[in-house]
Design a binder for these strands. Structure first.
Length: 300
DNA sequence: TAACCGTGGAA
DNA sequence: TTTCCAAGGTT
């Protein structure tokens, strides 16, 4: 009789307490899982649920999305935030069709090469869609491992190679068990070992938690700068894109002028949207979502 | 490395 | 009301 491992304890807890999220169902395609992972980047589960359903109902395969316009992808994205993700997801669908015959690849290197897919998302798809053994490290997992193993209150702002190593050492050898453990770590961080008010009373590894043993030392020093939103270019971009998203086809410059009074900042935000490929000019004084209609006539 | 990139809900 | 933060990626 050996002691249960850390991963074993968390996995056991997960099997009994996991939320019933649709992208975790066994019959879900790798494409559907990839879509969920991209939508979940910096975005709460409750907001992703309806968007994910609608997206896959419209574009059940990468090929379906690849054939539609960027403008429609941006519209379907709705108010999930970070609309560049919609653009990247469509580019990703195009790449999957062109490079992989329409099938989401199952090799880490191939996944990493896809637009909008980084270290976390590539590993998440490899593990959750294909059952491979990879450390899947997001903000939840970093926090769980940091607290339970290292005994520190919080992890750093970005995932580092050391985080992957530390997490990999916790994974069971068997691939399917490792994938399950990865999902379990994430769930624990999302539901129990939360950033603000951890529910240590219901934690399956409270007895061995290094942070708990230390008396739950508070974070030391100032954390990262709280990023303001009101008054930033980000907010102005959001307002501008909101108008363009609701419109069909070109929107007169004059109508965009109404969303923000500061001419300089508004122009900068609009230029940024164009630079990012979300918006394009139509003629001299109108703009539209990228690819929303036939190409503007080229003067000869 | 650090700044930038949306949005909305809870504390 | 303000602050925090939510399955990151890109440059």
């Amino acid at each position: 009789m050996t002691e249960p491992t850390f991963a074993g304890l968390v996995s056991r807890w997960y099997e009994r307490n996991a939320r019933d999220l649709p992208w975790r169902h066994p019959d879900v395609s790798p494409w559907a899982i990839l879509v969920s992972e991209v939508m979940l980047q910096q975005t709460p589960v409750v907001r992703v649920l309806p968007a994910w359903q609608a997206w896959l109902a419209r574009w059940p395969t990468p090929a379906a999305l690849a054939q539609d316009t960027p403008a429609e992808a941006i519209r379907m994205w709705g108010r999930l935030g970070y609309p560049r993700r919609a653009l990247r997801l469509r580019e990703c669908a195009v790449a999957v069709v062109e490079r992989h015959g329409g099938q989401v690849p199952d090799h880490l290197e191939q996944l990493l090469a896809l637009p909008g897919v980084g270290t976390y998302t590539a590993r998440a798809v490899a593990a959750f869609a294909y059952g491979q053994r990879h450390p899947v490290v997001d903000t939840n997992v970093r926090r769980v491992v940091c607290r339970a193993i290292a005994g520190e209150p919080d992890a750093g702002p970005a995932t580092r190679p050391a985080d992957l190593v530390a997490t990999e050492e916790l994974l069971p050898v068997e691939p399917a068990s490792a994938a399950l453990a990865s999902a379990a770590f994430m769930e624990l961080g999302a539901v129990v070992c939360t950033a603000r008010s951890p529910r240590c009373g219901v934690c399956p590894v409270e007895a061995t938690c290094a942070w708990r043993a230390s008396g739950q030392v508070a974070p030391d020093g100032p954390t990262r700068r709280p990023q303001r939103y009101a008054g930033t270019d980000r907010q102005v971009r959001g307002l501008l894109l909101g108008v363009l998203r609701e419109a069909t086809g070109p929107v007169p410059h004059q109508r965009l002028d109404q969303v923000w009074s500061d001419d300089v900042q508004r122009a900068r935000a609009l230029a940024g949207l164009v630079t990012d490929g979300l918006v394009e000019p139509v003629g001299e004084n109108a703009f539209r979502l990228i690819g929303d209609g036939p190409p503007a006539p080229v003067p000869t």
